[in-house]
């Protein structure tokens, strides 16, 4: 059962180090024990010696098999180093989606290349194929999904292992009906996420994410606020700040940002500034026109790719004025004023 020594020799040698020395070399390795429900070994004892003397009854209670512990431990160490290496390695230069066919087998005639920092809008009614398009990207389709599309990373077919590399997931999704199910403060919540990403200066990164989220959200919140009591806009702002700073995924899908309580344009800009590829499913003209291109979905396929024209961009100014006007009416309503004098 043991892995070949050549492949994992570093991990195997750590197995025989006394705990104190092991933690000096690999500070996060100690997490293995509580993760498995085990107490920490004594400082002077190596994991392999510890596994040999662990009480059989305890192992049975924890549903652990003594003979596989060493392997689980070295696998865990390999995972740690993969995660640490992968932290910055998820950069990509471009992603290319090659057309397949729609639900009626009509061929899609396109090859779409998107680069970090670009915004692409997705438009079309529910059920028109937007989710399938994202799934094709996430699954790195190679002509083997229902749409027959193919995805290239940096111009070439991706290595097969990338498909299941959950720590290198390509797409982060900021969906509309998102909830927090954890009972934690904002600060604890972001800290926990940063820890799972093996970040170095966790307090600093947590502070900067909360500050950024506060800039995006209309109403301020403190690090001590429970995540479950954030408003919709605040939650959105927090998740956008969090995703832009902590998510490893190079592509971010945003599913319609609601109007209230968040600086929508700035939020999208934040992601773009962090060199994310932003895909935005939206029918909000102000957001949709931020995209260089928009994909029109029909019947499970991409029916057209529209490049935003200068004329449309000129209209953006007008739409923004209209939006500001409506925003003012909304505010007046909120403040208990009459809304008779808006022209």
């Amino acid at each position: 059962m043991s892995t070949p020594l050549s492949k994992n020799s570093r991990e195997e040698s750590l197995l025989n180090l006394p705990l104190a020395e092991l933690l000096r070399q690999s500070p996060l390795a100690g997490e293995f024990f509580p993760t498995m429900g085990l107490p920490l070994p004594p400082e002077t004892m190596s994991p392999s010696a510890y596994f040999a003397i662990l009480d059989g009854e305890l192992l049975e209670d924890l549903a652990l098999a003594r003979e596989s512990l060493a392997e689980q431990f070295t696998d865990y160490l390999s995972l740690l180093s993969t995660l640490q290496k992968g932290r910055d390695a998820s950069r990509l230069e471009s992603i290319t989606i090659q057309g397949g066919h729609d639900k009626s087998n009509r061929q899609e005639e396109f090859s779409l290349t998107i680069r970090p920092g670009e915004i692409v809008s997705l438009v079309g009614p529910t059920g028109s194929g937007k989710s399938r398009f994202l799934a094709d990207i996430e699954w790195l389709a190679q002509g083997d999904t229902p749409t027959g599309r193919s995805v290239l990373i940096d111009g070439v077919p991706p290595e097969p292992g990338l498909r299941f590399a959950i720590d290198r997931k390509l797409v982060a999704q900021l969906s509309q009906n998102m909830n927090f199910v954890m009972d934690l403060s904002v600060e604890e919540f972001i800290t926990m996420h940063a820890e799972s990403r093996m970040m170095e200066d966790i307090p600093a990164i947590t502070r900067s994410i909360i500050a950024l989220a506060n800039e995006l959200a209309g109403e301020r919140f403190s690090p001590e606020t429970p995540v479950t009591s954030l408003s919709g806009g605040q939650s959105r702002a927090l998740m956008i700040a969090d995703t832009s700073c902590l998510s490893n995924s190079p592509i971010v899908l945003i599913d319609e940002i609601e109007n209230a309580g968040i600086d929508r344009k700035r939020a999208v800009r934040t992601l773009v500034d962090k060199r994310k590829i932003v895909l935005m499913a939206t029918h909000d003209p102000i957001l949709a026109l931020m995209g260089e291109r928009r994909l029109v979905f029909k019947n499970g396929g991409i029916a057209a790719i529209i490049t935003t024209s200068d004329k449309e961009r000129a209209n953006l100014k007008l739409f923004e004025e209209m939006d500001a006007k409506l925003g003012a009416v909304r505010n007046a309503l909120r403040n208990g004023e009459r809304i008779e004098d808006f022209r």
């Binding site: 720590d167 982060a172 009906n177 998102m178 996420h193």
Partner: peptide
């Protein structure tokens, strides 16, 4: 679809911690 992106990432990470070899 009903939890935040951050929670999804943390959850998947915790699964990976206890089962390093599974396809998730």
């Amino acid at each position: 679809d009903i939890v935040s992106q951050a929670e999804r990432e943390v959850f998947a990470h915790r699964v990976r911690q206890v089962n390093t070899n599974a396809t998730i």
